[in-house]
């Protein structure tokens, strides 16, 4: 599976080239164009092993119940993926490790990756992030998307990321809900409120923009829908 990211970072599309026998799993609705001989299978989990429980869990994490699997029939084929919001994408290669992904940022991965359910505890309720996360496990390539640009932060010690800006992080990092700076009052008055504090050694990928901040800027200009 070969991944090429085009037109970064403003209007990114992922071009995935597959050899016969290779399968790419993607979030439903992500495909924008593909070769004519590509076969699509839609399941609730991994190909040939539909699990309703895992699908239900995925719905809780804000993803759709179905996943699409793309496989070229006899010769190499290609498929393009895109997202609803404008922004950047990254491709990562996992080497028998776990990656915690903010649901909504997952776009596609190789068949060898197991898409699980990453429970991060009730603390995430307060962070402006979702309560449920995806846990990508195994070895293979992964494509993640974001609203805005993506920048990696190498954490060694402690680092603070504002809620809504997290794309993914290594499982080696421990995260807690905290305040920005020394004082709770200043953190709230400064508009930061609760933030996520990462501890340990690993990488956290952040999205530069936050859909939750752009929405309130736009909505006062929108007219109420006439029922």
């Amino acid at each position: 599976m070969n991944i090429e990211l085009l037109h970064r970072p403003g209007n990114t599309a992922a071009k995935v080239t597959l050899q016969p026998g290779e399968t790419c799993t993607a979030e439903s609705g992500a495909m924008i164009a593909m070769s004519g001989h590509m076969e699509i299978t839609t399941t609730t989990h991994k190909k040939k092993s539909g699990s309703l429980l895992k699908a239900v869990k995925r719905v809780f994490s804000g993803e759709s119940i179905f996943l699409n699997h793309f496989e070229p029939t006899d010769k190499p084929g290609e498929v393009f993926f895109g997202t609803d919001l404008a922004g950047d994408m990254i491709d990562l290669t996992l080497d028998n490790e776990n990656l915690i992904v903010q649901s909504g940022s997952f776009l596609a991965c190789e068949d060898s990756i197991d898409i699980g359910f990453g429970w991060q505890g009730f603390k995430t309720l307060f962070s402006g992030e979702r309560v449920f996360w995806l846990n990508l496990k195994g070895s293979g390539k992964v494509v993640l998307s974001s609203f805005g640009a993506i920048y990696p932060v190498e954490v060694d010690g402690e680092y603070i990321v504002d809620g809504g800006h997290i794309v993914a992080f290594n499982e080696t990092l421990d995260f807690s809900i905290s305040k920005a700076g020394k004082s709770w009052i200043h953190s709230f008055l400064g508009g930061e409120g609760l933030v996520c504090k990462f501890k340990g050694k690993g990488t956290v990928w952040c999205q530069s923009h936050n859909p939750g901040s752009f929405g309130p800027l736009l909505t006062p200009n929108l007219r109420a829908r006439k029922a």
């Binding site: 932060v153 010690g157 402690e158 680092y159 603070i160 990321v161 504002d162 800006h165 920005a180 700076g181 020394k182 004082s183 009052i185 200043h186 953190s187 709230f188 008055l189 400064g190 508009g191 930061e192 504090k197 952040c206 530069s208 936050n210 901040s213």
Partner: peptide
């Protein structure tokens, strides 16, 4: 900065409003 502009920072930077 204006409020809520920070997206990430080192944990030992002080923030006052």
């Amino acid at each position: 900065t204006e409020t809520d502009a920070m997206s990430s920072m080192d944990a030992d930077v002080d923030l006052t409003a």
